[in-house]
C-alpha cells in the first residue's frame, strides 16, 4: 500500500461520489420532465461511442511507439481481440483471450 488507510478511504469515497454524480445528475437535472432538448438527445446518441474511443486512447497513453517494443504487445493483443470478436462474438472469450495473450507477450516475448 502506497497510501495510508485514511487516504485510501478518502480515495474510495471520492471515486464513489464522482461515480454517483454521473449516475444521479440526469435524474436531478431533468426532474419531473422528460428531456426534450434535441441537442441533449443528439449528444445522448453519439457521445457514448466517442467516449469509448477516448477511453481506448487513455488506456494506451503510456505505450511508446518510437522505441522498442513499439507497442507490439498491445497491437498484437488488440488484433487478436478484433479477430476473435468478429469470429465468435463472445464478449467474455474475447476479453479473456486478449488479456491472456497480452500477459504472455509482456511476460515471455517482449521483455
Amino acid at each position: 500500500m502506497t497510501l495510508t488507510p485514511n487516504q485510501t478511504i478518502l480515495v474510495i469515497c471520492i471515486v464513489a461520489i464522482a461515480t454517483m454524480i454521473t449516475r444521479f445528475l440526469p435524474f436531478v437535472l431533468f426532474k419531473g420532465s422528460k428531456s426534450n432538448n434535441s441537442y441533449i438527445k443528439y449528444l445522448g446518441q453519439v457521445l457514448p461511442y466517442a467516449t469509448i474511443g477516448l477511453l481506448i486512447v487513455y488506456c494506451l497513453r503510456n505505450v511508446n511507439f518510437t522505441s522498442p517494443t513499439y507497442g507490439l504487445s498491445e497491437a498484437l493483443a488488440i488484433i487478436c481481440i478484433v479477430v476473435l470478436h468478429y469470429w465468435k462474438e463472445n464478449v467474455l472469450l474475447s476479453i479473456v483471450a486478449g488479456t491472456v495473450v497480452y500477459m504472455l507477450l509482456v511476460q515471455f516475448v517482449f521483455l
Partner: peptide
C-alpha cells in the same frame, strides 16, 4: 483495454455509430 476494445467493436458493427467513434479516437 480489452473490455473497451470489445465494447468498441460491438458499437462499430452499427454503421451509424462509426462517425462518433472515429471522432472520439
Amino acid at each position: 483495454t480489452a473490455l473497451f476494445v470489445v465494447i468498441f467493436i460491438g458499437q462499430w458493427k452499427n454503421k451509424e455509430n462509426r462517425k462518433p467513434a472515429i471522432i472520439g479516437i
